Amino acid sequence: MAEQPPKASGAPGGDPRRMEVRRPIAELGARAYAIQLLTDAGIPFLVGGAYAFAHYAGIYRDTKDLDLFIRKVDADRALEVLAQNGWRTESNVHGWLHKAFWDDFLVDLIYASGNGLTVVDDDWFTHAVCAQMLGCACKVPPAEEIFWSKAFVLERERFDGHELTHLLLKAGKNFDWPRLLRRFDRYWEVLLSHLMLFRFAYPADRAIVPEWLMNELLSRASGSVQEGNWEQKLCRGRLLSHAHYEVDINEWGYEDGRAWDEQDRKRGDEKLATGHGSSLHGPH
């Protein structure tokens, strides 16, 4: 019996063809062309998004664009290379990415996250993994950086929690857990929340997350319970969703915790920049 093609819905699954079933050949060619142009120009980049997730988790899904992660110092040059080769470009969209279009086909050059926390730095490249994508030799971001950047995506229209649990299930045994903990730093509660969801989803695989890490995070949580409420009325929800916590700021009298966090990071307060600091010792 002949092998059946995947359903045209592009729903996630284990068949690699699901990434291409809804995409015209010209679009896939444009993605490969962008990769080749930047490679030939010697500009470091990492293939992320659905392609990187499939590399680690073995789950393939349709994607409307190609996400390339790049350091800010290289992003303008990458955009210039694409523009010189016929791409229509837009720079500094929302303050954290460039966009390039080949006809209607989109490539995103991402150098930070929407909330400004997960900036693409040298460690993304130091720990990157070699892969074959769209017929090209390239690299994908480290699984830890993928987890870190997706952990703050909690929008109504997009929630990446299922990708995080699958990433832990399939790649967590090889995680550099101390490095991931350092990445979350003052946002350790976000890490703990996703690890608890993983434990709920996969009770037979809880040991993938090291016992020392769970004990450390639960100890911090216990300490924050003992500490009680912060005196300053903050809402840090806008670090998780740009739009859906505006009512708290605009109508309910909460101070914008995202703006506070940005200022606090700029001040470089060492006490609040440690893993315990931001939530065990809130502003008073």
Results as ranks from 00 to 15, higher is better:
W102N: 10
A34I: 08
A143M: 02
V120R: 00
H94K: 08
V119S: 12
P141I: 04
V119I: 15
A34K: 02
A30W: 03
F152G: 04
A128R: 06
P44S: 10
D108N: 14
E90I: 05
C138Q: 08
G95T: 10
A100G: 10
Q84H: 11
L37M: 13
P141C: 08
A78E: 02
A151V: 12
D74T: 06
W102L: 11
V93C: 03
A30D: 09
L37C: 09
A131S: 14
A57F: 05
K139I: 00
T89V: 15
I43E: 01
E145Y: 09
C130V: 10
S149Q: 13
L28N: 15
K72G: 09
H127E: 12
T89A: 05
L117S: 03
D122Q: 14
H127R: 15
V93E: 08
N92H: 11
G29I: 07
E80T: 14
V73E: 15
D76M: 08
V47Q: 05
A78I: 03
W102I: 06
G114H: 05
L79Y: 03
D67N: 10
T89M: 05
Y33E: 15
T89D: 04
R77Q: 11
G49Q: 04
A112T: 11
R61T: 15
A112Q: 10
V140Q: 00
R88A: 09
P24M: 08
